[in-house]
Amino acid sequence: MPDLAYHNKPSATPPLREDDHSPRAPLSIHDLTVAYHRKPVLWDIDLDIPEGKLVGIIGPNGAGKSTLIKACLDLVPKASGLVQVYGQPYKRQRSVVGYVPQRESVDWDFPVSALDVVTMGLYRDIGWFKVVRRKHKDIARAALDRVGISHLAERQISQLSGGQQQRVFLARALAQDASLYFMDEPFAAVDAATERAIVTLLKDLQSQGKTTLVVHHDLATVTQYFDYVILLNMRVVAAGPTEEVFTAENLHRTYGGKLTLLAEAGHALSQIKRG
């Protein structure tokens, strides 16, 4: 595992190699196609995400939002296409990328504490065969503090509420101290306090110049939370600054004939006009 071997993290923007002529965007995707059981899920995705944006990935169920993230992280095989993180393939940039999977993707009955889970974000730094040390636990504790649940560090994870579990996952990504974050539905089924805490955290990350991509479901809050959106329905319907791209027409093209969602979109748009 050569890529696990280096422990010195590249700085937020790694130096370009001389033979590297690709753009320095945190994330650029060219011609990405992904298929499950030969059925295409994502078609011809072309995207360049500018640095320091808080990006919402919006689209109906089955639009391939999670798959897009997973394809970027090499978690699902690409049928074709190229994903580059700061101009290099993901597998050479793992240390600058943080990932928050969907909360339901793991068994929360697992016998570990919140602190243990957050420490997992540091395993790469710790390296093969080595044990977790005090300094790693301190970093993990600090990450838990940033999401406001350091008092629950020793709690077994099944004894946490859904919102607290989501915060644990966020803390694990924070502990990685990445510059590009992928978050898969961090707002799904969390309480209002956690939602506010996550939003604060996202804005905080943005103010530090970090780029974050968030799979998001609630159209009503899109304009409030994100300054950049990707409207996705197997293809990229539109991508760009929220005020330009998040329009009734684009939403209609994204959600097609799904009336209930259109109503939601209408509600969201009326909010933009008001606010």
């Binding site: 595992m1 696990l4 793992r94 990932y99 999977p101 997992m120 790469r124």
Partner: peptide, 16 residues
């Protein structure tokens, strides 16, 4: 421990 708890995250971190 990481493998058993969160396969996806483990993979994304480059663990085999």
């Amino acid at each position: 421990k990481l493998l058993c708890f969160d396969e996806g995250f483990s993979r994304s971190q480059g663990w085999p």
